[in-house]
Amino acid sequence: MAKRTANTEIEIDMTPMIDMTFLLIIFFIIVNDMSQKDLEELKLPIAMEAGHDEPPENRPVLNVRWFPAGGVPDSVIAHYKELGIGIPSDQEWSDIVWKRNILYYPFMDTKGLTDPIRKGRPDYYWKLAETMRLVWVPEMATKMDDKLKRILPDDPILIRADRNTPFKYIQKIMEVCTREGIQIWKVQLAASEDPKIVDAREKAKRK
């Protein structure tokens, strides 16, 4: 038998481990869907006829969140604190979020602006309107309407709202869409499919 020296270095072969680690990384990169960053965590209402959503590239997504009195998650409170905005804790309220930007919150500073449709009333939705005018309308594909001689954005907007949001917020968003210089005319409302139906369909597929 060959005699071993006492100080033989033990070397682990790292190649398989690195291989495996790379495979894992590639798996997580593929599975991780970055396009979901626009979507806030919401409880969508359930609809039978909710068509499967294939998002167009430039479609803006407006999230309408809803919080019951006293039920505001810590993460939301922290986000508002960063912005230096006080939020009500004793009543239910909603806000409108686009790409993590808050475009409307309760008791928003109106900066003296008034609602162009209901003259004289404070315009709490100026930030939403401004963002739409500056960001969305130029970005979206536009076409000329010969009869009306104005430019109509052809893409819809998607409104994702919590199922308990008062509908007046959605109506307000729709109103803002029809404002001068925006004039978006198509809207899509997000809803989720009934989990029972999805289950049944999956079962039927397997058979």
Binding site: N32, Q36, M174, I184, V187, L189, A190, S192
Partner: peptide, 13 residues
């Protein structure tokens, strides 16, 4: 974050 499937309903403004 796994992709969540969502549906939508269309309407006019």
């Amino acid at each position: 974050k796994f992709k969540v499937l969502e549906g939508r309903l269309d309407a006019a403004l």
